[in-house]
């Protein structure tokens, strides 16, 4: 049992109730800063359309549908600005995807999502937090 405990997680006082429900994306407003939540609330409903960031012909070769997003954005150079990574873990300000979502003056072409409506500041803040947390595949 002592060997199993460290594998069980680290919530609460160090002892985890394995029967406790997994946290929901909506436990935090607007959603948790985890990739699967960002996928559910941002990438899938607003980006992963045919003709946009879904195959075939995902714009700029960037596929943003479930199961592909992480390998397509984290540590991958931007096509529009090859000097920047799409997502640089720990560095949201120099992550090109964050700049595109913010509508930063340095971006090439249009702010995303294309044509709007753009993400709210709260939603962008969640994605920024995910990047600050290391942009993990979580």
């Amino acid at each position: 049992m002592a060997l199993l405990l460290p594998l069980a997680g680290c919530a609460g006082e160090g002892i985890v109730d394995p029967t406790a429900p997994a946290p929901l994306c909506t436990d935090i407003v607007p959603f948790r800063p985890e990739l699967h939540c960002i996928q559910q609330f941002v990438f899938t409903p607003t980006c992963a359309f045919s003709g946009c960031h879904a195959n075939p012909g995902a714009q700029l070769g960037m596929e943003l549908y479930e199961g592909r997003t992480f390998m397509q954005i984290v540590g991958v150079p931007s096509v529009e600005d090859p000097n920047l990574l799409r997502i640089e873990p720990g560095n949201p300000d120099d992550s090109y995807l964050i700049r595109k979502l913010r509508g930063d003056p340095s971006i090439v072409e249009e702010r995303m999502p294309f044509g709007g409506p753009y993400l709210t500041q709260e939603e962008i803040d969640v994605i920024v937090q995910w990047v600050l947390d290391g942009a993990e595949d979580n």
């Binding site: 045919s50 003709g51 946009c52 012909g57 714009q59 294309f114 044509g115």
Partner: peptide
């Protein structure tokens, strides 16, 4: 108008 759905949703637009 690139944001017209026949442009934005087909992928045939001035962004592409």
């Amino acid at each position: 108008d690139d944001t017209a759905f026949i442009r934005a949703r087909t992928g045939f637009n001035f962004q592409s």
